[in-house]
Write a protein that binds this DNA or RNA. Structure first.
Lengths: 208, 208
DNA sequence: AATACACTACCGAAATATGAGTATATTTTG
DNA sequence: CAAAATATACTCATATTTCGGTAGTGTATT
């Protein structure tokens, strides 16, 4: 029996998945948590083989939580359960060294298959996630992997709050020129045409 | 036994909820659909008392679907199951005359309670949804109920696509002045400070 | 020591957006 | 039909963004 924990802030989903998995022969649900923080608290005393981790959670998202999980229990397996097919999230998930990525549109059979495969030592990425990943690598070859500096991210967030360069400068105690330079660099790095593009970029990346 | 149908594009959620509800005495799940369109197709021949309807679906969202459902089966009850607590969505749901609004963070007991209450003829709105609704009405008293004209929505969408007034004008075969006027009206109606605010507004309203 | 990078700051100019008005044609609606 | 709402177009003025440069300073890495 594979000991599985479920982390998802939607109680109905958590309970439903738990009932489904409980009916499977190879799987045993040993814990349900409504946030990554709760899981992290319980983890040291938890006997668990694999964690099904939601991404979109309010307090701490799954991808941030994964490294923390591995710090506490380096041998535990982590499989991401996500709603949407965001290429950045998949890339982040891979970078966080999770062992699998599933969509909530999957069937229960696929979840069990993924759990079993991951426990056997192989990673499991759903077909859609896999395709998205391949596409991302292609796009990377084509040219751009957008890497923002911490300061740029800071400026980006303020742009998203409807602030103009003047206000950003005042808020960060820098010159307007500097704020403008950062904005220009943001535009050129992201390939956006204007601030509208920046907001969309920021939202896609989860910066706001 | 109350005959219930479930509409949600996440198969795991759909199946999980179905299993949960199947174990309840008063409820019988008579159908599961992964999109509103599928449900609408099946509806004429479906004996159903109440439909649990997800909001965030790719093809047709729940709130758009509700009126179509009532056209086909005027007596059926509709309860919205949503992930997030967006005040606009709740308002839209109320406007669409659905009979209930639940969050996916609810417990299974609350879902059953809601189903039973709605079937008894009363509406059921979760505590959080109710509070949000009260707040919205307060905000309405304070001043603004933002109503955009179809043309304004059209301009708004193009703004969200990183187009400037010149390009919008060309695209819509109107003068730049007109495009600019629409933009300014959008800013003043929504109370936003710049285009960045407009994008966020548009996203919140589901225009993009 | 040299190189690279991030952050900072500036200049000048062109393109766009925003603010405050006015005005008219068309469509919708009571 | 008349009134109201909507879409259209304009002027003048100012603010802001965007684009093209250049460049010093500190820090980390090779």
């Amino acid at each position: 029996m594979i000991k599985v924990a479920i982390v998802d802030d939607h109680r109905l989903f958590r309970q439903g998945l738990s009932v489904i998995l409980a009916s499977k022969e190879s799987v045993e649900v040993v814990g349900k948590y409504e946030s990554a923080i709760e899981l992290l608290k319980a983890l040291p005393d938890l006997e668990v083989d694999l964690i099904l981790l939601d991404i979109d959670m309010s307090e701490m998202d799954g991808i941030t939580a994964a490294p923390e999980i591995f710090k506490i229990k380096p041998t535990v397996k982590v499989v991401i359960l996500s709603m949407h097919l965001s290429s950045h999230k998949i890339q982040d998930a891979v970078a966080a060294k999770v062992h699998g990525y599933l969509l909530k549109t999957s069937s229960d059979e696929e979840v069990v298959a993924a759990i079993e495969q991951v426990m056997s030592g192989k990673d499991y990425f759903s077909k859609e996630a896999h395709e998205q990943l391949v596409e991302s690598f292609r796009a990377r070859d084509e040219g751009q992997e957008v890497e923002l500096t911490p300061r740029e991210i800071e400026i980006l967030k303020l742009v998203c709050e409807e602030m103009n360069s003047q206000e950003i400068a005042e808020k960060l105690f820098i010159s307007v020129h500097t704020a403008e330079t950062h904005r220009r660099n943001l535009l050129s790095k992201t390939g956006c045409r204007n601030s509208v593009g920046l907001v969309r970029f920021a939202m896609d990346r989860g910066y706001c």
